[in-house]
């Protein structure tokens, strides 16, 4: 980041040279920016247009704002409820993932004990398991614990399937922390638990935020797991399920305006969160890239 910023500053200072390549580079960059943001913008713009307009001219701008698309999507597709469900599940699963993940990662990164390598490999190897191989047995594991179609079950499964990446990421981070601090704490008579919670965790904050954001995105957008493991009461569906249902529903009711409104309501909050935290996301990726 600092590199980029100083680069921009330098640019403002002196702008000499230039050429064809610059134009060439820029036009590609602009093209992709349009491609990346275009569909998102199109959905947001279209969400203000009534169904008949959308069918006759998909590219048009809203003539007047059709707010009832939003109220239709809100009531008929229950976006609000699904968002709430997702939020509740994520409160539990994100906290759990961060807690369990950092506990395991800390121990694996800072302590030598027999089996350390094995456990580490077991966790990180999980990144390569296709979720689909496990999905059928997992269904019955949850069923037998009475956790199928419950929030607790979904939370536990989200935690379990987020652990590989979280552990992998945090282990490499905890290894970079200076050992002296830990030793000093031990000499002062602090227990390992205290050292972890009161000294190491605060030091690891940037990494925790980064991995937390990745887990948030991953869990918020999880599609496969809830589709199989959370099918009991439709009122308990999480957002991705609700969106898939909305898509099918519009196949029968034919109201694209409401569909776009529903999609907009589902994606704008996440985009807002991202833009607010984009600096952390990028530093997080930097930490991951420059291990």
């Amino acid at each position: 980041m600092s590199n980029t910023r100083s680069g921009e500053a330098a640019e403002r200072r002196a702008d000499t040279g230039g050429g064809v390549l610059n134009v060439f580079a820029h036009s590609f960059l602009v093209l992709w920016a349009v491609l990346a943001a275009g569909p998102v913008l199109w959905v947001v713009v279209s969400s203000f247009r009534p169904h008949t307009d959308l069918v006759s001219d998909p590219f048009g701008l809203p003539t007047d704002l059709a707010w009832d698309n939003f109220s239709n999507a809100w009531t008929s597709a229950d976006i609000g409820r699904y968002t709430l469900n997702s939020a509740i599940v994520l409160c539990g699963s994100l906290t759990g993932t961060m807690l369990l993940g950092s506990m395991a990662a800390y121990v694996l990164a800072r302590f030598t004990f027999p089996g350390n390598r094995t456990v580490h490999l077991l966790f990180t190897g999980g990144m390569m398991f296709p979720v689909f191989l496990a999905i059928v047995p997992l269904f019955f594991v949850l069923d037998n614990f009475g956790l199928l179609n419950t929030r607790q079950g979904l939370i536990l499964v989200y935690i379990a399937y987020s652990l590989p990446f979280t552990v992998f990421f945090l282990v490499s981070f905890f290894r970079t922390l200076p050992g002296a601090v830990q030793e000093a704490a031990t000499l002062d008579g602090a227990s390992h638990t205290r050292t972890f919670f009161q000294i190491m965790m605060p030091m690891a904050r940037p990494a925790l935020i980064s991995v937390g954001i990745f887990n948030f995105l991953g869990q918020w957008n999880q599609f496969v797991l809830p589709r199989v493991l959370n099918v009991g009461d439709p009122d308990d569906a999480v957002l991705p399920q609700g969106l898939a249902a909305l898509m099918v529903q519009q196949g029968y009711e034919g109201d694209w305006g409401a569909l776009y409104a529903g999609v907009s309501m589902a994606m704008l909050p996440v985009l807002a969160v991202y833009v607010a935290f984009q600096r952390q996301v990028q530093t997080g990726l930097t930490a991951g890239a420059v291990r």
Partner: peptide, 11 residues
């Protein structure tokens, strides 16, 4: 550029 990555695959 990062926008699409933020959106759920369902969306």
């Amino acid at each position: 550029y990062f926008f699409p990555q933020v959106l759920s695959l369902a969306i």
